[in-house]
Simulated scan of single mutants.
Amino acid sequence: MSRVTIDSDPNPTTLAWAVRLLRAEAVALGLVAVWLVWADLTADTTDLPSALLVTAFAVGGAAALWALGGALGRRRAGARAPAIVLELMLLPVGWYMIQGGLGWLGVPLMALGLGVGALLVSPPTTRALGF
């Protein structure tokens, strides 16, 4: 007979914060997407295909972050790896912001990516997701 272990913390704080931060990132990227749509509609001259591609990328990123946050909130283990990949994508984005003189934004973005990534691989989150 195998022993059954009952998880004493069904929703660990680390997982709850990871979900909150993923959802906050989704909202922030959604606001950027709204601004991009407005910019696409009001621009005097533009490269329309490129503008639409950047806007679609922002909308897709916001939707992916929101969906991954929801899946992790429901403790779906398969959502952890894609969420970590999206968080790691903040590192080069932040780096190029720093190189471009936007260190005030790049450094916090890099810290956010590393922080959420750490929350997603922490032992309580790992146990809650069944790994």
Rank of each mutant, 00 (worst) to 15 (best):
D47K: 05
G106W: 03
V107D: 06
W35R: 08
V19R: 09
L48F: 13
D47Y: 14
L31E: 07
T45Q: 13
G60R: 11
R23G: 02
L53Y: 14
T55G: 13
L48Y: 05
W38R: 10
G94N: 04
A118K: 04
A71T: 06
T46S: 15
Q99P: 01
D47M: 10
L105C: 04
V34P: 05
A56Q: 09
L109F: 11
V34I: 14
A111E: 00
L22F: 05
R74A: 15
D47T: 15
A39M: 13
G101T: 00
R20A: 14
G60Q: 02
T45F: 14
T46P: 01
A28C: 07
D44Q: 07
L52G: 15
M110L: 08
G61A: 02
V27N: 04
D40A: 15
W95D: 04
L65T: 03
M89T: 07
L68T: 05
T45E: 08
G117K: 03
V27Y: 10
G117N: 09
W95V: 15
A24P: 03
L114V: 10
P49A: 08
R80L: 00
L102A: 12
W38S: 07
T42S: 11
V59L: 12
T55Q: 15
A79V: 06
P82D: 12
L119H: 07
L48Q: 09
W95Y: 14
L52D: 10
P49T: 09
V93R: 01
G94R: 06
G117M: 02
M110C: 11
A56L: 15
R74W: 02
L91V: 06
A83N: 02
G78V: 05
M97H: 02
V37S: 04
L91I: 04
A28Q: 06
G103A: 15
V116F: 06
E87G: 02
W38M: 09
I98D: 07
L109M: 09
L21R: 10
A79N: 06
A77S: 13
A51F: 15
V37K: 03
L102I: 00
L119C: 03
L36I: 00
W35Q: 06
P82T: 11
V19Y: 05
G30W: 09
V59H: 01
G69I: 13
I98A: 15
L31V: 13
R76S: 14
M110W: 07
I84T: 07
L88P: 02
R80A: 11
A62D: 09
V54N: 03
A63C: 07
V34S: 04
G73C: 14
